[in-house]
Design a binder for these strands. Structure first.
Length: 456
RNA sequence: UCCCCGGUAGCUCAGUCGGUAGAGCAGGUGGCUGUUAACCACCCUGUCGCUGGUUCGAGUCCGGCCCGGGGAGCCA
């Protein structure tokens, strides 16, 4: 039986078998206490062993060891736990000597990061990865309930003009002697007959499916070869990208808001023990923050209004605030942390600082874009209404000097049966950071990939 | 890529004015009738990131390099 189930028992149970990993052992003269965890929940089960248990096996029970124990579950006579297992039979399945690097004490996240193969056995990471698993399920549940089609967009892509960062190259050419043509590499001889890389977004393909199934979403790995050294960027991360036909920017914002609220409520309902842990050890006040978020309505502010508010704030910023310039991190933080004190949609940005596919507004100088900013994490969602008018989109691509050839399929959607549509991208790890209070993206993804780091 | 901070025992860290390295935890041994960050006593632990320089003498000062973290940019 898993420990989570055992701890929920209403009455004593005879002859139970448990298996798991030893967190800590306390030995006194005649009694040995073992804290056993099997990852099913944060709490450990206390095993009590007396002289009747095989002394040799008992001696091999150390922090980190894997054991199987059989015994009776009885009410614990001491404070601290409701149940404990009186051990009658004990077998050590996998010993752990004193070189086991995780001790029964607090370790720095930095240290634990260097042993990503063992850190899932630590309390914090147990909680993080249970939350990650639960929230993955919740993502699918949310969209499934609303009739969204789940689409697997390609990992390998030939379109490198999505404007969303550097691509990792995918090639089978000999790096020392690539075929050359006109002074450069002849990508025509590569595996796919063209230059390819790992996807930086499934959005463009998502749009194609939205024009057949109305509402769709993707949820998969995304890759950016940016040389970013921050606590919020990883080279490989998971992104959720819904796309809705017949939706405008307002509908897009509503979906984002409903989605985030659903996920927060799901976490509060299903991950209570782990959130309680985060609240106590990681971010004091986390539960109040999430509870408030589950009920609050999100604020919306246009970019133009944001600029006005920033300029009249009297706040000294390092970077200038001027209409037409992109908002800096310090500005975004000020807006959602100081001005609003919660999640904030900023909408309708100047077209020159946003991607080519965003829908031009009537004013001729802004596009129907939105960013959702949250305290501490910053931008957690970025989305827009897409330009569905073939002539407008083509003109915009020409204006930016983009080649239409490689994106012909993207334009075809506008040529035949075009429709208004909108969508957004949500960084799954950033969501987890916000829900757990964890401050480094490397600590909410099982085996983080960052510049110079691809271990495990 | 740029800016800032750091690297000392297995871990977390202290190390003053340059004088040859230390505390807690972990580990080991013993003790303790039920512990739960167990407790008490004793014991063990070092390429002070690497490299060159200054100096009678460098963990400490200077140069270079490596690694890690934070921030900026880019963005999710």
């Amino acid at each position: 039986m898993r420990i989570q189930q055992i701890l929920l028992q209403e009455q004593a149970v005879q002859n139970l078998t448990v298996r798991g990993w030893v967190r800590t052992v306390r030995r006194s003269k005649e009694v040995v206490f073992i804290e056993l965890n099997d990852g099913s929940c944060l709490a450990s089960l206390q095993l009590v062993a007396t002289e009747s248990v095989d002394a040799q096996a008992l001696a091999a029970v150390t922090t980190g060891a894997c054991i199987e124990a059989r015994g009776d579950l009885v009410a614990s006579p001491a404070a601290g736990q409701r149940w404990e297992l009186r051990v009658t039979q004990l077998e050590v399945l996998g010993e752990a000597d004193s070189s086991y690097p995780m001790q029964k004490k607090r370790h720095s996240f930095e240290y634990l990061r260097s042993m990503a193969h063992l850190r899932p056995r630590a309390n914090t990471f147990g909680a993080v990865f249970r939350l990650r698993s639960a929230l993955s399920f919740a993502v699918h549940q949310f969209f499934h309930q609303r009739g969204f089609l789940y689409v697997h967009t390609p990992i390998i892509t030939a379109s490198d003009c999505e404007g969303a960062g550097e691509l990792f190259r995918v090639t089978t050419l000999d790096p020392l002697h690539p075929p050359l043509k006109e002074g450069g590499v002849d990508w025509g001889q590569d595996f796919f007959g063209t230059r390819t890389g790992l996807t930086v977004s499934g959005q463009l393909q998502g749009e194609l499916f939205a024009t057949a199934f109305r509402d769709i979403y993707t949820f998969g790995p995304t890759f950016r070869a940016e040389n970013s050294h921050t606590s919020r960027h990883a080279s490989e991360f998971w992104m959720i990208e819904p796309e809705m036909a017949f939706a405008d920017l307002a509908a897009d914002c509503r979906l984002a808001e409903d989605f985030l609220r659903f996920l927060v409520r799901y976490a509060l309902e299903h991950c209570g023990e782990d959130l309680q842990f985060f609240n106590e050890r990681i971010e004091p006040g986390l539960l109040d923050k999430l509870t408030a978020l589950a009920d609050a309505r999100f604020e919306t502010m246009s970019y133009s209004e944001a600029v006005t508010r920033l300029k009249s704030s009297g706040q000294a910023f390092e970077f200038p605030v001027e209409w037409g310039l992109d908002l800096q991190s310090e500005h975004e933080r000020y807006l959602c942390e100081q001005v609003i004190g919660g999640p904030l949609f900023v909408t309708d940005y100047p077209k020159q600082i946003k991607a080519f596919y965003m829908r031009a507004n009537e004013d001729g100088r802004t596009v129907a874009a939105m960013d959702l900013l949250v305290p501490r994490v910053g931008e957690i969602i970025g989305g827009s209404q897409r330009e569905e008018r073939l002539d407008v989109l083509s003109a915009r691509m020409d204006e930016l000097g983009m080649e239409r050839e490689s994106l012909q399929w993207y334009l075809d959607i506008r040529r035949w049966g075009s429709c208004p549509h909108a969508g957004f991208g949500l960084g799954f790890e950033r969501l987890l950071m916000y829900l757990s209070g964890m401050e480094n993206i490397r600590d909410v993804i099982p085996f983080p990939r960052t510049p110079g780091q691809a271990l495990f």
